[in-house]
Amino acid sequence: MNNLDTLPKKKILSLFMTCGFPTLSQSKRIFNEMLSHQPDVIEFGLPFSDPMADGPIIQEANKLALNSNLSTQQSLNLIKELSKSKNNTSFVIMCYLNTVRKFGVDKFIKSIKNIVDGIIIVDLPFEEESEIKKALSKNNIHLIKLISPMTDKKRAQKLLKGSKGFIYYISATGITGSNKLDYKEINKNVKSLKKMSKIPVLVGFGIKSKKDVLEISKKTNADGVIIGSALIQKYFDLKMDINKYLMALKKLIKEVKV
């Protein structure tokens, strides 16, 4: 059973959070809070020292997690522990290839089998994916594809052939946490993607508030949204007070669950 195969048809909510941020024990409290809202998807970011496709907020979260000496194994243990109460929520790992390679591709996949439903390896392009994709699919883990506004139609068709789970459409030509949303362009591209594939299209990068979520739902054909940087930003806004942060997180998640 893979939870990603039974995602709802519309208004899918995916929440991203960095593992081990700001510390391992606080991270557990944060993920438990997120999980208590039963979002459709939780994305677990594995911290990397050089997250070049992420913005400054997620980079800072990675840095805090790594400063507390978080290991890949600890992140995977955390995900495993949380999975006991995952219910219908899909678990997706978002990470960089070096983390997986260094851990050992086979060992990594073995560790997340039956726990994680999908994985986004940010810097693993289509051209390099075949080996890992095969190993993942053998273990019923979906390799989630990123599509950017720069991906042309022909390339998108190639990338999406046989893809499972959902399509992660990067809304702004930018890195996570950037602030320009062009609904017209999003709608045009999402429409075109939906013609190529039957799996849901989720829009991510730059979605910050209830207003953004509603606009995406109203003005575009997207099946759902991914929120990440905005969740983490609150921690820094609240001067790193974990108790205040957990309350703010609760409030924000309730708001974006439309």
Binding site: M52, A53, L97, V122, D123, L124, P125, F126, E127, E128, K145, L146, I147, S148, M150, T151, D152, R155, L159, I170, T173, G174, I175
Partner: peptide, 20 residues
């Protein structure tokens, strides 16, 4: 043709950069 020097090299970037 895909930028490999033996096993080294390649293009390990996100899809935002790949088309470029």
């Amino acid at each position: 043709t895909v930028g490999r020097f033996g096993e080294f090299g390649g293009m390990y970037v996100s899809e935002t950069l790949m088309p470029l």
